[in-house]
Design a protein around this nucleic acid. Structure first.
Lengths: 143, 143
DNA sequence: CAACTGATGTAATATCATAACATTACATGA
DNA sequence: TCATGTAATGTTATGATATTACATCAGTTG
């Protein structure tokens, strides 16, 4: 299990931030804040706020993403690239897996739309729901 | 105030569905399910489920959209076009206004990404956060 | 040390959503 | 008519997600 030299605005992670991030990184799919809380009881976590505070910072730093359509969180899988590139998520409704993707042309189109409209864009949420390749292959063919 | 001949899969709206839809149409911005409940107390609504059941059907029919990043709902503003085209929302964090938009090129890119990846796409969520044109003009210039 | 700052801990509460079950309205056909 | 089926509705309780408010602790700096 690799060490974390993750940092947050130059500062190292605090204990709670590290525990939350490690929990997310060890987990394949998304976790809700309350699942994280339950899994960190043994480490001394007692209240939701401990999780939410850590998540806030981790999300700000780009180390964790919030999935709005699930009210859940995943560790960023873009290796060592926690930039704030515009990013999308494909969420499988069968197995719960989440894939990150980033398509420059989509970003460009959204930015162009915002520019043309006078909208000052701060953040984008792009979430696809459906079946991942594996689950789609097992599922009955095209309804 | 126009009459509603909205229909839902051929069937006319039920009383609760009509009340919820009318409330959303009379409102500029998004409403949470509980706000709708509060506003419909006078019409006899007593419990969240009455609202959620109506919203489910209205969302299925494309007459209402759910904003995942707000946990709130808006009436569809695409006049008489309640198709299931892929649609995005630009949400102003200052005044709360919501604009629908639909860019074919974005849809195409997302569909293409899904096809290339083997992802069987069922639904997309695209939500932009920022400042609408009006609020952006009043705000301090580019941070 | 005093004052400040940032992180933490804790309790209470607000907000969003659904489960489970009872009841009503109404259509349809024996 | 009235039995039956079904869709909608009503009601209570509960589950799930998120924040407010306030107390405490640790480290830093004057």
């Amino acid at each position: 299990m690799a060490e974390h030299q993750h940092a947050l605005g130059g500062k190292p992670l605090t204990k709670n931030q590290r525990l939350v991030l490690e929990r997310l990184e060890k987990t394949e799919g998304p976790l809700s804040a309350y699942s994280i809380l339950d899994e960190l009881r043994d480490e001394g976590f007692r209240a939701p706020l401990q999780v939410y505070r850590a998540l806030d910072k981790l999300v700000d730093a780009g180390l964790v993403h919030r999935l709005e359509s699930l009210n859940a969180f995943v560790a960023c899988r873009h290796p060592s690239c926690h930039s704030h590139r515009m990013i999308g998520f494909a969420i499988c409704e069968e197995c719960g897996s989440v894939q990150e993707f980033s398509q420059d042309r989509i970003s460009e189109e959204l930015v162009a739309w915002a520019r043309d409209d006078g909208f000052r864009l701060k953040k984008t949420t792009i979430e696809l729901r459906g079946l991942c390749k594996t689950c789609a292959e097992q599922a009955p063919l095209q309804s």
